[in-house]
């Protein structure tokens, strides 16, 4: 018994030693290679999150110039504010319609481009259509401002040419501004999603389509039963990434409308920026950022679950 026991100990010890040696041989270089990236990620994403969480439970007193703990007060105040629920709704709309546009339109365009057209023609068109994506949203905002100008907009010129009496200035109209921003966003970012979907389509084995043809499946049927199931996960991953990005979208909206007119294009990102950097209400901005982060992670989690279930 006892010899057996010590044998086991020795055995365990040697295992441990081998493990440690392995550790030195395997882990050390890995730490050198991966370490900087991991440290940065933690420092610049996880730490700020904790900070924002903490900040969101504080309140700044203008009398004592000090922060004090108020628990969930900031969150409750946000939800009691009718403007904030309007902003949540608008954020959801912007995100939903933009994502639907990017993925839907991107998918259709990718299908057309992948339907047997000359490869060089396809890659040239792909490169060209991608150009708006590589332009800064600020330059896009500048173009959008001029295109939405009541006197000099090119679209306005066209309308005038057809003797239309419509006054074209979508970014200045509360009922049109959001739609205009969604369209601009779809225009700028669809090419990126088109590109990703097209690459996925080009990765499908052509023999699968040949086999389907023999079985009598053509056109839409092929799309439905071969293409879609095969690129389902790519589509879902892109949808998740897109939803999350558009839910936090800031640049174009801020530079064109700043959330106006009459707050009709105010979304979470612009609300947070204004609360923090313009009105210096950091605790409220922090609370809203936490809500945005929660929203983002819920969306990501739901899509992950859908993906797992389908496998």
């Amino acid at each position: 018994m006892s010899t057996n026991h010590s044998d086991m100990q020795i055995n365990n010890l040697s295992k441990l030693r081998r493990g440690l040696l392995n550790l030195r041989h395997k882990i050390n270089p890995v730490i050198i290679f991966i370490g900087p990236a991991v440290i940065l990620v933690i420092l610049i994403s996880i730490y700020p999150t904790i900070r924002v969480l903490y900040l969101s439970t504080l309140e700044y007193s203008k009398k004592t110039f000090e922060y004090s703990f108020v628990g969930l007060q900031n969150y409750i105040a946000l939800f009691k504010n009718p403007i904030f629920s309007k902003i949540l709704k608008q954020t959801w709309d912007f995100s939903l319609y933009s994502t639907a546009g990017h993925i839907g339109l991107g998918f259709i365009l990718a299908l057309i481009m992948n339907s047997g057209l000359n490869r060089r023609f396809v890659s040239a068109s792909r490169a060209l259509i991608l150009l708006p994506w590589a332009v800064s949203p600020i330059v896009i905002a500048m173009i959008a401002q001029i295109w939405s100008h009541p006197l000099i907009s090119p679209i306005g010129h066209v309308l005038k040419f057809f003797n239309s009496s419509i006054e074209f200035m979508p970014l200045g109209m509360p009922g049109q501004a959001m739609t205009a921003l969604i369209i601009i966003n779809i225009w700028q970012f669809t090419p990126f999603y088109l590109l990703m979907i097209l690459s996925a389509l080009q990765g499908i084995d052509p023999e699968l389509y040949e086999a389907a043809k023999v079985d009598g499946a053509t056109g839409l049927k092929q799309t439905r039963y071969i293409t879609l199931p095969l690129i389902r996960n790519v589509l879902l991953t892109l949808t998740m990434f897109d939803f999350v990005t558009t839910a936090a979208y800031f640049d174009l909206i801020w530079v064109t409308t700043q959330g106006g007119p009459v707050r009709s294009t105010d979304v979470l990102a612009t609300f947070i920026y204004r609360a923090g950097f313009l009105t210096q209400d950091w605790a409220r901005a922090a609370a809203a950022s936490v809500l945005l982060l929660i929203f983002v992670f819920i969306v990501a989690a739901i899509i992950q679950i859908i993906m797992r279930r389908g496998e």
């Binding site: 991966i34 610049i44 936090a248 947070i272 923090g276 982060l293 983002v296």
Partner: peptide, 22 residues
């Protein structure tokens, strides 16, 4: 770790700005 690094793409820029400004 790959997933961890990917997750930072999910962090809204405004959140990072608010948190890191101070």
């Amino acid at each position: 770790i790959r997933v961890l690094i990917l997750i930072i793409r999910l962090f809204p820029g405004v959140l990072l700005s608010i948190a890191l400004f101070h």
